Amino acid sequence: MLVKIPEAPDDLVQQLKLATGMATASKAFLAAARSHEPLLAQVEALTAEVQSLKERLERSNEVIGSARAAAVSLLGSVGPGRKAPASLKDLGDWFDSQASLDLHPKPAADWESFAEVVRDINDDGSLVKGRDPGSS
């Protein structure tokens, strides 16, 4: 069957021949027509993925905004005479310098004192009832 497309611009025919690897215009048009459906499905899948990534980015930006607000609130507790951190590195250094913010407890000096602490903790992480922590 002969299909003639007299209004097809020469540059379009050349582009299709290059893109499809076909030697003739009719084979190039046929190859382009055959690839239309799979390419359309691919575009739809990629569009859905982009939308999903946009939503994920929006949620991440909300988390970052909340973290910034929490950091500002925390920095608001800087006492008089203390300099507030100007960058994230400074913030980390500031946390490290705060003796009153013991966020990382020191390890036990020896196994005996470690055993005293562990003895007062149940398997589920709760304290043993009826005994003061550290008592025998």
Rank of each mutant, 00 (worst) to 15 (best):
K27D: 15
K27Q: 07
K27G: 03
K27E: 15
K27F: 06
A28Y: 11
A28D: 00
F29G: 01
F29R: 05
F29A: 13
F29E: 02
F29K: 02
F29C: 03
L30K: 13
L30V: 05
A31H: 06
A31L: 05
A31E: 15
A31Y: 06
A32I: 04
A32T: 10
A32M: 10
A32E: 09
A33R: 04
A33M: 08
A33L: 11
A33S: 09
R34A: 08
R34E: 09
R34S: 04
R34Y: 01
S35P: 00
S35H: 03
S35E: 12
S35W: 01
H36V: 08
H36T: 07
H36S: 05
E37T: 13
E37Y: 07
E37R: 12
P38M: 07
L39E: 12
L39M: 12
L39S: 11
L40C: 10
L40P: 01
L40G: 03
L40F: 11
A41P: 00
A41F: 09
A41I: 06
A41Y: 09
Q42R: 08
Q42G: 01
Q42T: 03
Q42W: 03
Q42M: 10
V43C: 09
V43Y: 11
V43W: 01
V43M: 04
V43G: 02
V43T: 12
V43D: 07
V43H: 13
V43R: 07
E44S: 09
E44I: 04
A45Q: 11
A45D: 14
A45K: 15
A45V: 05
L46A: 08
L46C: 04
L46F: 02
L46N: 07
T47L: 08
T47M: 10
T47F: 00
A48E: 07
A48S: 12
A48N: 12
A48W: 02
E49D: 14
E49R: 15
E49K: 14
E49Q: 15
E49V: 07
E49W: 03
E49F: 03
V50F: 07
V50A: 06
V50I: 15
V50K: 13
Q51M: 03
Q51C: 00
Q51F: 06
Q51A: 13
Q51L: 10
Q51Y: 02
S52Q: 14
S52N: 05
S52G: 07
S52H: 12
L53V: 04
L53I: 10
L53D: 01
L53E: 04
K54S: 05
K54G: 01
K54W: 01
K54M: 09
K54P: 00
E55S: 14
E55G: 08
E55T: 13
E55Q: 14
E55D: 14
R56Y: 06
R56D: 08
R56P: 01
R56E: 07
L57P: 00
L57N: 04
L57A: 05
L57D: 05
E58V: 09
E58Y: 04
R59Y: 03
R59F: 01
S60P: 00
S60G: 02
S60C: 01
S60L: 10
S60E: 09
